[in-house]
């Protein structure tokens, strides 16, 4: 097939190759612009005055940089009747996420260790049942959970939200650790048992020290999930205990007064910063978590 055209076409194809390369880079760059543009618009809008937003261009750089919108978003913007900015809700999210992440990761580690290394009859069924729990649409548990939280007296509280996030997080954390530990040969446990090591000791001094990468994956996954959660936050919180995503939505959709787009954007960036930071610092682990449930390792 190539015989007839090979040599005369060679130089032309080298030229064509360079053109193709350039085309490729241009297309990739255009897509980069597409993904970055919303972030760019958010940042520039948050640094403009309302006057400039009204008269200026959506994608234009701010003529005069002002941090007023950021100040308002952080400590003055109104979420319904309260006007304290996103600050208290930001801390609510921290208070929900930190214990939620720690508890669900610990439980996931122990569960994964048992399921992968201490296989008893029925362990696979238990794992399948837990795994399925990861995929249910949470709408199906909202109503009974609301009633149960009420009965337990933790409806609308931060401990209530931590509880919910732990319960529906352990399926995923168990999956992470189980899939990680299953690659460790079972001979290790057998040998340790012969040496007289106990169940907990083997976990503590053999498995945990090996687990750093998967612990990071689990922490990042759970943190992103809990921080970005809206459904549980809006269903199970009340005035004062809302997480930052709910507060952001309230600020953006509050109908009173002048619409302050710059404040909306500053509040949105504040709400996004923690997970963005995690992504920038530990993107590799973030992607591992994302793909863990969908691609077999």
């Amino acid at each position: 097939m190539t015989d007839a055209t090979f040599s005369p076409a060679r130089r032309q194809s080298a030229l064509g190759k360079t053109a193709l390369r350039w085309g490729l880079y241009i297309i990739l760059a255009l897509f980069a612009v597409y993904y970055l543009l919303p972030l760019f618009v958010m940042v520039t809008t948050s640094l403009k005055s309302l006057e400039e937003i009204r008269t200026g261009d959506l994608v234009a750089l701010p003529r005069e940089i002002t941090f007023d919108a950021w100040r308002t978003a952080w400590s003055e913007a109104c979420t319904g009747i309260q006007c304290e900015g996103v600050r208290p809700y930001f801390w609510n999210s921290v208070l929900i996420a930190v214990p939620g992440v720690v508890i669900s990761t610990l439980l996931g580690a122990v569960n994964g260790y048992v399921i992968a290394q201490w296989r008893f009859k029925g362990a696979n069924i238990i794992f399948a049942l837990m795994l399925f729990g990861c995929f249910i649409p949470f709408q199906v548990v909202l109503l009974p959970m609301a009633r149960l939280l009420g009965m337990m007296g933790i409806a609308g509280t931060i401990p209530g939200l931590i509880f919910v996030h732990v319960i529906y997080g352990i399926g995923f954390t168990t999956l992470f650790f189980r899939n990680y530990y299953v690659t460790i040969p079972q001979e290790l446990v057998k040998a340790a048992k012969v040496d007289g090591a106990t169940f907990l000791r083997i976990f503590w001094s053999i498995f945990l020290p090996l687990s750093l990468p998967i612990i990071v994956v689990s922490i990042i996954w759970q943190f992103t999930q809990i921080w970005n959660d809206f459904l549980f936050g809006v269903s199970f919180s009340q005035a004062g205990t809302q997480p930052v995503t709910v507060a952001l939505n309230n600020i953006v959709n509050s109908t009173t007064g002048v619409k302050e787009y710059n404040v909306d954007m500053a509040a949105a960036i504040i709400a996004a910063l923690p997970t963005l930071l995690v992504y920038v610092v530990a993107g590799k682990y973030f992607i591992r978590g994302l793909t863990a449930g969908s691609v077999k390792g």
Partner: peptide, 19 residues
């Protein structure tokens, strides 16, 4: 760059696109 939106809350994405 292509993947960072996945780290954002849908509420943040919604707020940005709404604007």
């Amino acid at each position: 760059i292509y993947l960072y939106p996945m780290a954002l809350s849908m509420i943040v994405t919604g707020t940005a696109w709404k604007w």
